[in-house]
Design a protein around this nucleic acid. Structure first.
Length: 506
RNA sequence: GGCCCGUUCGGCUAUCGGUUAGGCCGCCAGGUUUUCAUCCUGGAAAGAGGGGUUCAACUCCCCUACGGGCUACCA
């Protein structure tokens, strides 16, 4: 019966800031799994901590998923299905009854301990936790007399609802990636289920919503592994064990250097984005880079992310989203954490740029180019893209590193001009200009031949001539093939640059 | 500290008891290119350590070391 269950998975981020790239990977694996089995992929916003909410974070999550192209078919920002609402704050009223149900069945209790009293616990023993060993000595509905409870209630003393963890029992559950995991309940504590503000904690809300939304598989980060036994216990105490989802805890994304979880700091430190989209902190105004703005293609980011912690076997590495869906299986997810590899991310991006149809690339590049260099004809942009497509790593490279396609060089660096000094001394610039002007068919072959002839008749080494022309055109000693570049720039521009260079350099 | 999870080249990984331990990124060398990039060819580079189990262990078990996560009325 279990095998026939409809696949329904969810991505359940907390809107406490911009969605981390690791979160994108978690969403991706959920998406791939859902699509592979023709199931549902749901976005649920876990905003039960009202103190940590960050303005704009929820929209950022939605925008990010849209940008990378892994859209939920149900959930916040993506259309309500029959399980709406999908924001836990909007579901607030639904959780209390389950907490009360647990109390009625002897699986939970009210606790009135103040913050200070809880701190006292730790003072006596730093390892102390609220559990079977001491719950009777603390202020809760298990330890207090009925009259005392009534007084508390009358005085509106704030309280929480805590789970009553069994004293010493083994809880075993199966993780789809790691296999059986067993924890003894004596290691667990009586976690708060319902906070004093009436909001559920993650644990209660998560279990209730997954049950209510008929989630079949919980695919989430490894940081949740330690609390999974608590969730299993909740399913049991709530009488939902037969509907309990399967669990898969994903390996973490680690820092590129050293160890530890990848963090925002690493991005700042290493100059690489760790967020899908650019993000400006509403409070501090601090800006963090985004993959999109840095010139990454969403398909490349997806492909790269998919392979950080998962591998289909075989040697093929460039996978479209559809191909990933086809190839994806949970059992091929790795167990250990994966260090973030920026170089590999760049490689994926350059591969995807090379795969792009040139007119498509031209259209992508157009806004940045025109913002910087003014209006350009599409045909020209396409020609320019064709010229440098295979040397681009980022979409933004064109505007950032190939300005010479759009405007004449303004200065010539000394290291470059020093290399063409000798040729300049013997060069007849007007003859060269004349040669360029006389080129008729303007094919790259003809252009190349004309320069060779010019070099021969003027007794110049062809390589030296080319160096001069190259510096004239791009102000550097490297770049695309000169005949092709000349085709793109056109005669007039070439002549202008040749003259400029000849007269400007010493 | 306690609990849980993990550990193959510098990085991502393949291998599901028998392989010259393979691929990709990066790196190095050579070729192509008048240059650079692309592209092509080649190269260096790994099973954390110690015990078992087995005819045979990277693969299974145990210990140690190391790394990570969790240990909130945060998720």
């Amino acid at each position: 019966m279990d095998e026939l269950r409809r696949v329904r998975v969810r991505f359940a981020p907390s809107p406490t800031g911009p969605l981390h790239i690791g979160g994108v990977r978690t969403a991706l694996y959920n998406y791939l799994f859902a699509k592979k089995y023709h199931g549902d992929f749901i976005l649920r916003i876990e905003d039960t901590d009202q103190n940590r909410l960050v303005k704009g974070a929820e929209q950022y999550i939605i925008d990010s998923l849209k940008w990378v192209g892994i859209e939920p078919n149900e959930g916040a920002g993506f259309g309500d299905g029959e399980f709406a609402p999908y924001r836990q704050s909007d579901r607030k009223g639904s959780y209390r009854q389950y907490a009360e149900q647990l109390i009625a069945n002897g699986h939970a209790y009210y606790a009135f301990d103040s913050e200070e009293e809880l701190e006292q616990l730790k003072v006596a023993n730093s390892n102390a936790k609220y559990d079977a060993s001491n719950r009777l000595a603390l202020k809760n509905s298990l330890s207090l007399a009925v009259e005392e409870l009534e007084t508390m209630q009358r005085n509106n003393v704030p309280y929480v609802i805590r789970i009553k963890v069994p004293e010493a029992a083994e809880i075993t559950f199966y993780d789809e990636i790691r296999g059986n995991i067993t924890v003894n309940t004596k290691e667990m504590d009586d976690k708060v289920l319902l906070k004093s503000d009436g909001m559920p904690t993650y644990h209660l809300a998560n279990v209730c919503d997954d049950f209510l939304m008929k989630i079949s598989h919980v695919i989430r980060g490894e940081e949740w592994l330690p609390s999974a036994p608590l969730h299993v216990l909740l399913y049991r105490c709530l009488g939902w064990e037969s509907m309990m989802p399967k669990f898969a805890h994903l390996p973490l994304l680690l820092k590129p250097d050293g160890n530890g979880k990848l963090s925002k700091r690493d991005g700042d430190r290493l100059g690489f984005p760790v967020f899908p989209l650019q993000w400006t902190d509403p409070l501090t105004g601090d800006m963090s880079k985004g993959y999109k703005q840095e010139g990454y293609l969403p398909e490349a980011v997806i492909n790269f992310l998919a392979f950080l912690g998962w591998n289909p076997g075989g040697t093929k590495e460039i996978f479209s989203l559809d191909e990933l869906v086809e190839a994806f299986t949970i059992d091929r997810i790795s167990h250990g954490g994966a260090k973030f590899d920026f170089e590999k991310a760049k490689w994926f991006n350059s591969e995807y740029i090379k795969q792009l149809d040139t007119p498509v690339l031209a259209a992508m590049v157009k806004p940045q180019i025109e913002e910087r260099f003014g209006p350009k004809k599409d045909a020209f942009l396409i020609a320019a893209c064709g010229l440098i497509k295979e040397r681009m790593v980022f979409v933004s490279d064109m505007a950032n590193h190939y300005a010479y396609l759009f405007e004449n060089p303004k200065t010539y660096a000394e290291i470059n001009t020093s290399k063409i000094k000798s040729i300049k001394e013997i060069l007849n610039i007007s003859a060269l200009v004349h040669t360029v002007n006389n080129i008729t068919t303007f094919t790259s072959l003809e252009i190349e031949n004309e320069f060779k002839n010019f070099a021969a008749t003027n007794n110049i080494k062809p390589g030296e001539l080319m160096k001069f022309i190259r510096v004239s055109l791009v102000s550097e000693l490297s770049g695309p093939s000169i005949p092709e570049l000349i085709q793109v720039l056109g005669k007039a521009t070439v002549v202008e640059r040749l003259n400029n260079c000849y007269h400007q350099i010493p």
